[in-house]
Design a binder for these strands. Sequence first.
DNA 1: GTAGAACCTCAGCTTAACTTGAGGTCAAGG
DNA 2: CCTTGACCTCAAGTTAAGCTGAGGTTCTAC
Lengths: 148, 148
Amino acid sequence: MAISEASFSVGQIAERAGVSVATLHFYESRGLIGSERNAGNQRRYRRGVLRRIAVIKTAQRLGLSLADIADAMATLPVDRTPTKADWKRLSTRWRSQLQARIEQLQRLRDELDGCIGCGCLSLRQCRLRNPDDCAGDEGEGAIYLERA
Amino acid sequence: MAISEASFSVGQIAERAGVSVATLHFYESRGLIGSERNAGNQRRYRRGVLRRIAVIKTAQRLGLSLADIADAMATLPVDRTPTKADWKRLSTRWRSQLQARIEQLQRLRDELDGCIGCGCLSLRQCRLRNPDDCAGDEGEGAIYLERA
DNA sequence: GTAGAACCTCAGCTTAACTTGAGGTCAAGG
DNA sequence: CCTTGACCTCAAGTTAAGCTGAGGTTCTAC
């Protein structure tokens, strides 16, 4: 092994990354980041961990769970510092997940648009039922909920 | 008061609405739905509760928390069955929240697009930093995280 | 009139992503 | 030498949105 370049303490990393020390411990327990120890058993991080934390926070904004993020990050090389191409692979994958999510919400919005005219708020089922039902003060025992 | 038309049991409502009995108890404890009791202390619901449940489920799909939903529903009239216009008010409000969320995700996507070229995955901060930083193998102590 | 289904309340479990606290260690400064 | 601050581990608390189970009651049907 080359000389370890792990020279940042938890406190330093926490401050630079804008997260709490406890969060760093937590991320480590989840295998999201790694650290080495000094003679006194204190964590020492290498600078690269800052990027990992940034990526974790970014992925969370995309709506991913830490478990998902851990999975994705597990595809990064262990034996070397990830390259631009490595990160790019992740972001490309996440970008399409994000796109899918956007499209899902757009569909939902369009359905809601349809319902605003009707006032019923029951979305899909509304369109399956006849308009009169929607206009009726309460309908009858119809199932309003989606099943899927 | 007119003769109570509350004539559905929890089991019946649960089945028609596609939720569990426990969920109905839970919603009631959160003030999202109401019920009356019969002589033997069992809950009796009026038909209108089905629409409320449908609306709750719809709102959840929009990404709202039960607390948000409870707030919104608190604006419905207590003294009479909500009209089409009442529901419409809710859906219009939610529609704009949904739209805002979509736009937020779209911005995120666009930022991510910018980062895919760079490979850095650090989003906003990436654009604030100079391109060389991104190209460098690890940059230096820069803050990758968003602060807002 | 009695079995069994459905109902009642209340308490505790579940997952995610952390935060908070207790009790103990370690290195630097005065 | 002693205090102080940063660090350590481990356990328990927090919020959301329910689920599950225990122990007890009511309703329905035979």
